[in-house]
Amino acid sequence: MRFNINGQPMEADVDTRTSLLDLLREHLELFGTKKGCNQGACGACTVLVDGQRINSCLALAVQYQDREIITIEGLGAPGSLHPLQAAFVEHDGFQCGYCTPGQICSAVGMADELARGVPSYVTADIAAEAIDVTDEELRERMSGNLCRCGAYNGIIDAIRETLAQAASADVKREAA
């Protein structure tokens, strides 16, 4: 089977039962995507498929051939971290680091959902042009990603700061 992962074509010969998560970890040695429950309850296995976040433990690899898959390894590496990865380090948005790749991939997917104006359970005005990005809004949208180390405050700080920086960069770009 052929896959497109982090912009690279990859091949693997896997069972039809193999999850996208196990494909990444056990067949392609991309161990950055984590397994915390294997049943869609923790979010540690979050990856981006065509820009949308999914729990890769609930996805069968066979269904994801030739889709654009981005894992934590595709976002950045030490020395060239994605802004959100750098913000997680700065704000101590983790302790053990096991839920972290999932939190970061999830936050990248969430940023896109916010930008597209997808409302959430706590969105006060679903008719509004743009979503008011409150901490409550971020927390609700990130609640599928568990952190047993309890680094939630640092995670929200990191996401809030990164979103604000991206927004001000956009404003500058438009002004120029």
Partner: peptide
Amino acid sequence: DGPLKVAGQA
């Protein structure tokens, strides 16, 4: 070890 952890390389 933060950079390793956030990059999924730990």
